[in-house]
Write a protein that binds this DNA or RNA. Structure first.
Lengths: 145, 145
DNA sequence: AAAAAATTGACAGAAATAGTCGGGTATGCT
DNA sequence: AGCATACCCGACTATTTCTGTCAATTTTTT
């Protein structure tokens, strides 16, 4: 059971974007420096985030990325869905996904239930929640750079 | 976000064991054939399960494995903990696990909350629950072999 | 047209996982 | 005592997945 860093990076980058932005586009270079994430890797993520309509790109000089929607309308599970394929791929079923009426179906039900649990948890948190949380922490702490 | 097949195999094998057993030890060879899992791979898993006191081994001819505890006292998260190291390793923190007071702490809180969610879900299901479920399915279906 | 900036796709290194193989050790039956 | 059964253990390999990088292209502004 593990969460890919890809998902973690995407969430962090978006929180950073939302936190930094004053309405004008933010370059991923700025995010990269602030979050210490490889610039090129971030590019990959933002390509997917744009396709998933989480962010909008503004090309040309002075360009960058802006949130495509209000942060309260962006949930964490949407972000994860966008950057990786599935939140929880199941490898326990027969290759064709059918049920052979053996024990697999029993255990499958467990993982599927778990998957739903995970999803609903992630769906209950929005980017705005995290940003507010992050803002609090930043002001409550001494600067660290 | 994915669940290792190791955990899935372990759970399936234990359900199978509990389902097949009439009190006498069950050989992993039998489980291997029933669940179509490599014998040697299963052995590896059962070594860990024995160390984790989920099962007990009976040596010599006529031997095999028996559950070490009542199935109602074996929860799924115990099984997973036993066969793999951690349910949810976090890679989002600084290598030493400290908080650098940046945005990491915000997003860390998300993953940690998620980890607890997952754990409590898996802790709420026992081997007995799954076995009963499996028994129902087996009798409710036509034989498939 | 030139320059700046974003987009794209292909690619390589690293890490984790799945599964295999061979030998060893303890136990019970004859 | 000896043999067969069945668990125990460590090392090894192949495969997949993930992470991260590089180079080339397209678009927009000046």
């Amino acid at each position: 059971m593990r969460m890919s860093t890809k998902a973690q990076y995407a969430v962090r980058a978006l929180v950073s974007l939302n936190l930094t932005s004053d309405g004008a586009p933010v370059t991923i270079k700025a995010i990269s420096e602030q979050e210490k994430i490889s610039l090129n890797y971030l590019e990959q993520l933002f390509v997917k985030l744009r396709r998933g309509e989480i962010v909008q790109s503004v090309r040309g000089p002075g360009g960058g990325y802006v949130l495509a929607r209000h942060p309260a309308d962006i949930t964490i599970d949407q972000i994860i869905d966008t950057v990786e394929e599935a939140i929880m791929p199941l490898s326990c079923m027969n290759d064709d996904g059918s049920c052979s009426c053996g024990l697999e179906c029993t255990t499958q039900a467990v993982w599927q239930g778990l998957g739903q649990q995970i999803r609903s948890f992630l769906a209950s948190m929005t980017l705005e929640d995290l940003t507010n949380d992050g803002r609090q922490r930043l002001t409550g702490c001494v600067s660290n750079s």
